[in-house]
Design a protein around this nucleic acid. Structure first.
Lengths: 89, 89
DNA sequence: TCGCCTATTTATAACGC
DNA sequence: TGCGTTATAAATAGGCG
């Protein structure tokens, strides 16, 4: 969104990259919050940026609870995995 | 977004809630992906829904790597924490 | 360098099949 | 019951002060 269509590639300019990070991080956290409330879902979100600090989000449960639930999943029925290979449009 | 302004409260109708979950989950994963690429950030996203399966997302690094990095943070400088208390608008 | 503004692009709630 | 479309709400890129 914005004045111009954005290509999904690393933003070279450091200042601009940090500005964008700050804005989109807030947006992502808001979306995660909305999803957790609207759909009664436990969401855990962890972000590490090279320059900025760690950022976390979790809904009603704590990050630790959600991570524990993930780690303790039987076998590894950790289905529904996505990575960079999961490209939308 | 959508035809009508949405209140952020749990969607009572089960069918509708699952439809919304499916759509917004994809949107959230896409946003997480874009953030990780644009800003060169490691992102880990874990979602548990009551009815649907676990969903994960991580960028170039694996979920396990990112979780390990989080767990191994010295002391608990786990700053920048947000939870439901972090309400936007 | 920082926060606010707004033209545009996106995401998506209801619909339509 | 699902999947694609459309009207509308939201997010946000680039500007401005």
């Amino acid at each position: 969104m914005g004045r111009v269509k954005l290509q999904i590639k690393m933003i070279e300019n450091t200042t601009n990259r940090q500005v964008t990070y700050s804005k989109r991080r807030n947006g992502l956290i808001k979306k995660a919050y909305e999803l957790s409330v609207l759909c009664d879902v436990d969401v855990a979100l962890i972000m590490f940026s090279p320059s900025e600090r760690l950022s976390l989000f979790s809904g009603n449960k704590s990050i630790e609870e959600i991570l524990a639930r993930y780690v303790n999943l039987p076998g590894h029925e950790r289905g529904g995995r996505f990575s960079s290979a999961f490209l939308l449009s």
